[in-house]
Amino acid sequence: TTFEIRVGDLRITLHNADEEEIRWAEEALRRGIHADEILRTLEERRR
């Protein structure tokens, strides 16, 4: 599944994310964390 998060002009697309990952990514985007860093962190958490 694919889920797109939008916060203002910012956007990130997550693939195969669970609800916790989606909530975490949305909050991180709101705090101004760059999408590349969010994706990198999620990848590390999945390992």
Rank of each mutant, 00 (worst) to 15 (best):
D36M: 11
T2V: 12
L29N: 02
A25H: 00
T1P: 13
E19L: 08
L42I: 15
H15Q: 05
R23P: 01
R31Q: 08
I33M: 14
E37S: 08
A28S: 11
I12E: 01
D36W: 14
D9Q: 06
E20K: 10
E44D: 09
I33P: 00
E21G: 06
A17R: 03
I33N: 04
E19V: 12
W24V: 02
R47P: 05
T2C: 15
E4R: 00
A35Q: 08
I12S: 01
R46S: 04
I12R: 01
L14T: 01
T1W: 10
R31H: 08
F3P: 07
R45L: 07
N16Y: 05
D36L: 13
A17S: 04
A28V: 04
E20P: 06
T41K: 08
L39K: 06
A17C: 03
A25E: 00
W24R: 01
R45M: 12
R11L: 11
L42H: 02
L42N: 00
R11E: 06
G8K: 03
R23Q: 10
E20Y: 11
E44A: 14
R40H: 12
L42T: 02
E4Y: 04
V7C: 10
I5S: 01
I5W: 01
I22F: 05
D18K: 11
T13W: 03
A28R: 07
R31E: 06
L42P: 00
R23M: 10
L29K: 00
E4F: 04
A28L: 08
I12V: 13
W24T: 02
R11C: 13
G32N: 06
F3V: 15
D18H: 09
L14M: 04
E21V: 05
R46H: 08
H15Y: 15
G8M: 03
H34Q: 12
R6M: 13
N16F: 08
A35K: 06
H34A: 09
T13D: 02
V7K: 01
E43A: 14
E20W: 13
A25R: 00
A25I: 07
F3D: 14
E27C: 15
T13V: 12
E21T: 08
E37Y: 13
L14S: 00
T41C: 07
R6C: 12
N16I: 04
I22V: 07
R40G: 05
E43N: 13
N16M: 07
W24L: 06
E26S: 13
H15D: 04
E20D: 10
T2Y: 15
R30F: 11
R30H: 07
L10K: 12
L14K: 00
I33A: 06
R31G: 07
G8H: 02
R46N: 04
F3E: 14
D36I: 11
R46W: 06
E44F: 14
E19Q: 12
I38T: 01
A28P: 00
R47K: 14
L39H: 11
F3A: 15
R11Y: 12
L39Q: 06
G8D: 03
R11T: 15
I12A: 01
E20V: 11
A35S: 09
I12N: 01
R30V: 07
H15R: 06
I12Y: 13
I33W: 14
R23F: 07
L10I: 12
V7I: 11
L29F: 05
N16L: 05
L29G: 02
G8F: 02
L10H: 11
I33L: 08
A25T: 07
E19F: 09
H15K: 06
H15F: 14
T13Q: 04
E19R: 08
I5E: 07
R31V: 06
R45W: 14
L39S: 04
G32Q: 03
I33E: 08
T1K: 13
E27T: 13
I22A: 14
R46C: 04
I33R: 09
I33Y: 11
T41S: 09
E19K: 10
R30N: 05
D9A: 09
T41I: 09
L39N: 04
E4G: 00
T1E: 15
R46E: 02
L39M: 09
E20I: 08
I33S: 06
R31W: 12
T13G: 02
R31L: 09
E37W: 13
L14H: 00
N16K: 04
I38Q: 00
D18Y: 08
A28H: 05
L42G: 00
T13F: 03
E37F: 13
R47M: 14
H34G: 13
L29H: 02
E21Q: 06
T2A: 15
E26I: 15
I5M: 04
H15W: 14
L29A: 05
T1D: 15
A17D: 02
R11F: 13
E4I: 06
R31Y: 12
E27L: 14
H34N: 13
L42V: 09
R6H: 09
R47D: 07
F3T: 15
L29V: 06
A17K: 02
A17V: 14
G8N: 03
L14R: 01
E44Q: 13
E37Q: 08
H34S: 13
E19T: 08
L42E: 00
D18T: 14
D18C: 08
L14P: 00
E19W: 12
I38M: 06
I38D: 00
R47F: 14
E27Q: 12
E20N: 10
T1G: 15
I33F: 12
L10N: 07
L39D: 02
R23T: 09
T1S: 10
F3L: 14
E44P: 01
E4D: 05
R47W: 11
T13C: 05
R40V: 08
G32Y: 04
E21L: 05
L14N: 00
E43W: 13
V7R: 01
T2H: 15
E26A: 14
R31D: 07
I12P: 00
R46Y: 05
I22D: 00
I12C: 02
R40P: 02
A25Q: 00
E44Y: 14
L10P: 00
L10Y: 12
E26T: 15
I12H: 01
I38A: 02
F3I: 15
G32A: 03
G8T: 01
G8E: 04
G8S: 02
I22E: 02
R47V: 14
I12F: 07
E20H: 10
A17G: 03
N16H: 06
T13I: 11
N16Q: 05
E43T: 12
H34P: 14
I38W: 01
R45F: 10
A28I: 03
F3C: 15
I38K: 00
R45S: 07
R46D: 03
E20S: 13
T2E: 15
A28N: 06
W24Q: 02
R30P: 00
A28W: 14
I33G: 05
H34T: 12
G8Y: 04
